[in-house]
């Protein structure tokens, strides 16, 4: 097996084309079909490290994984009631979103955000919605909304 690392440019060009294809097919609805992307990575890399169902701990673990794996340079967060503001610096996938914006398409998916949503839903059973992705110079500002626990379907 060839275990040579593949270039980031190659990965990001594929991600861009896949995202664009989703957009072309579903328009604004595309965002809702990508909400679990990163699930396998989350289960193998993040979930085993989450030892407590405390939101601060969950966010800290996801931030550390993202940083130690070289996916982002820095991830910080702040809370305002049920609003969760995440600030991501130096994301390896930033060029994907820059290309979407250059086409006039508002960013609609974010792998680091998905990991955070998956973690909160898994450990706290609280639904989360990624409301906004704002791109600034070198920084992505994410707004997530936290909801109360889901009704049981059992």
């Amino acid at each position: 097996m060839n275990d040579k690392l593949i270039p980031l440019e190659y990965v990001n060009s594929l991600m861009f084309e896949m995202e664009k294809a989703f957009w072309d097919e579903r328009g604004k609805g595309a965002r809702f079909r990508l909400t679990t992307v990163g699930k396998e990575y989350f289960k193998s890399k993040c979930l085993p490290l989450i030892q407590s169902p405390e939101l601060d701990h969950i966010l800290q673990v996801i931030g550390e994984v993202l940083k130690s794996e070289g996916i982002v340079g820095k991830a910080t967060y702040s809370r305002d009631d049920r609003m969760l503001h995440i600030r991501i610096e130096g994301c390896v996938h930033r060029k994907v979103e820059d290309r979407m914006v250059a086409l006039g398409i508002e960013p609609f998916t974010c792998m680091p955000a998905n990991l955070i949503v998956l973690a909160i839903e898994e450990k706290l059973d609280r639904p989360v919605e990624l409301a906004e992705i704002k791109l600034e110079y070198g920084v992505c500002k994410l707004l997530l909304v936290l909801f109360d626990q889901r009704p049981s379907l059992v």
């Binding site: 809702f32 639904p127 409301a131 909304v145 909801f147």
Partner: peptide
Amino acid sequence: KKMGAVAGGGSGRRFTAEFVT
């Protein structure tokens, strides 16, 4: 009722996101 809970929960999330932004 269970289906309604899933549907309502989904709509509530999406529209709340639309509202707060």
